[in-house]
Write a protein that binds this DNA or RNA. Structure first.
Lengths: 206, 206, 206, 206
DNA sequence: AATGAATGAGGTTTCATTCAT
DNA sequence: GATGAATGAAACCTCATTCAT
């Protein structure tokens, strides 16, 4: 039954991801999670201790999925900076597309003033490879004299993250307002291009 | 003990804005709102009917504050397009700075899949003047031949809104990650400049 | 304004009759009564003291309406017993037809184990003329040797009251079950006849 | 502390029958029911969903008790009509004697304009055996030429039901008024006899 | 490991009643 | 005499958590 216990634990986590990303910490229901996981409420307490502890696990889990996005650009000597930026943007867009729960969880945490994230050691322990890629690109570009001397890595990361993240985080209020279909392939392309131009503009002239 | 129904109603609304923007619909507590408004719980039900109805009023109220941001750029014949963009960006940044509750409420609504917003007639009835300003600017610029023919208003609005909004909506998770002080005057300036460059780039070349 | 105060008091009583006969003591709402009376809740407390006290007034008022049903049969020397019975039945049926609130209030009191009625002095003080008519008829009939010696007044009253009352008190559950239209003139007639036969049977043979 | 869901559910139902028949839907208290059932309020909601849903169950349950009154008269070839009527009356009196809650619940429903009963499928689905007994007796008597041609089943049922029901439903207001002890065996007998004479009179001459 | 019955604190809402004007 | 704002207790209901099996 060791496999069974592992499976139950995983089922609970999956159900929790769904429930917490949908409703947030306050709105989520232990009953719903148990029902969705196909198990008993007691199991949740046995494996995770409490609602909040389970929520922490979900955050951890989601954040770690970002850590797994690999961005190999630095070692490729033939790549130019414009392509690097494109690749980084693509990677991040793709990641967010593939992880709608991540987007929501981060939003809940923002509203929660990142209270839970701050409590988690692992989260702040590692740096996401995608951010490291930006950092090494900026360093290299500055060394090569291609990027301006006053360019600050954090502004690039900020632009990247918010530029891509916004696309997903305003999924409900904005399209409604502007009549945009955010799943339209053309719109995505335009958005990526605008972000690319913005970042490359900052890097070269900023 | 004052007996002033208008005042009480306003006190309740103010307390509700605070509570709902802090905790969201699910996390907010009627007791907290009553205590904060300095009145009895019954008053809330007498004046607003239910927790959800009060939440709707808060959303309506916040959204209407955006409608009051006036942007007079079109009538000024001497103004050039770059200045127009700056002014619009300034106005919106200023608005968001002055209305942190607005930012949060919009975020809650995004997570709520805009369920409540959709139910409110007024919200979708009017168009915010700041958005109309963008629209008329784009039209004029296209007519003047300064902006590209393929420029789409909605991309500009989208860039404006998300570019500025992100600055505030990621207030808790990002600075923590990037070590930025979002209240630093310099950072604000840089951010505005990046946004300005991005939008003007799209408008003239996009 | 003295007339006004009387009017208000009467309006409240009327509204209370409606509300209490519809919903009973527990289900009635002071707000509804005030709204229906077109006055303020405070007035109810000023004029009647409390919800229960108002309820008592309603009961009193309704019961007194029964006391006003006059049945002049005894003085009419030419009338035979069968006609007397008919007249008494008619009177009572007519009264109940005209006073649906009376029927309901009595029913509420029955469910309430007559707790409120018992507390009211006036109610038990007088005897309803219709009951006195039955009593004097029975006495006279027995003296005349027309009615059996063992005939008990109270059984006649009981038969009269329940026989007529049932017709109205089961207004909702029975027609639904039996497919009877209790407002149909023919049904009323049959019912009266059955009751008449039953009572006269008891009186002469019982 | 027993953990027995069936028992708990039954305890709740029993307590609910008591509370609802005593106080009606509006006057009944969930707390009282829980206390009387010896369980937690939450259990009531887990097993029955809401106060109203519990009330519906009570009505269903009571009504079904009537369905279980068996009246085997039709198959007995030696029985004459007068005895049949006696048996039916006895059965129904006995049932009402044994089920005071039934009487009260039906009364509440009458005051409630049978709103809840109407919503219950089962209730209107089956026909009570005692009513079927009356129907088959009337049919047979008419075929045999013993009962009048114009005799209507529904008047018999109506007379039976109201005649017996009244005896119990006016338990509190009438004895108080007439000085009758409704538990006195003699009174019951007289009442049954009056009802028997009334019904047989209608059937043979009506 | 797993179940589901049970708990109790706390949530939203209602309502008879009072009070300042 | 009349108003309507305000109160507080108590109503119905929910939900994270525990416990016996």
């Amino acid at each position: 039954m060791e496999r069974n216990s592992k499976l139950t634990k995983q089922n609970i986590l999956n159900a929790a991801i769904k429930e917490f990303s949908d409703k947030g910490l306050a709105g989520a229901r232990i009953d719903t999670i148990a029902a969705d996981a196909g198990c008993n409420k007691g199991m949740i307490y046995q494996y995770y201790g409490s609602k909040e502890a389970l929520y922490e696990c979900v955050i951890k889990y989601e954040y770690e999925s970002l850590l797994q996005v690999e961005v190999d650009i630095v070692n490729d000597k033939n790549m130019n900076y414009m392509d690097m930026i494109s690749i980084i943007i693509d990677k991040y867009f793709d990641f967010l597309f593939a992880h709608p729960d991540f987007v929501k969880i981060i939003m809940w945490e923002n509203l929660n003033e990142a209270r839970t994230m701050k409590n988690i050691a692992t989260v702040s322990g590692y740096k996401a490879p995608i951010i490291e890629a930006v950092e090494s690109m900026v360093r290299k570009g500055r060394d090569d004299g291609v990027f301006g001397e006053n360019v600050r890595t954090r502004h690039v990361v900020f632009a990247l993250i918010t530029g891509a993240f916004s696309y997903f985080s305003n999924r409900y209020t904005l399209p409604h307002l502007l009549g945009m279909d955010l799943d339209d392939e053309k719109i995505v392309k335009t958005q990526k291009k605008i972000l690319h131009d913005s970042i490359s503009g900052y890097l070269t002239k900023g």
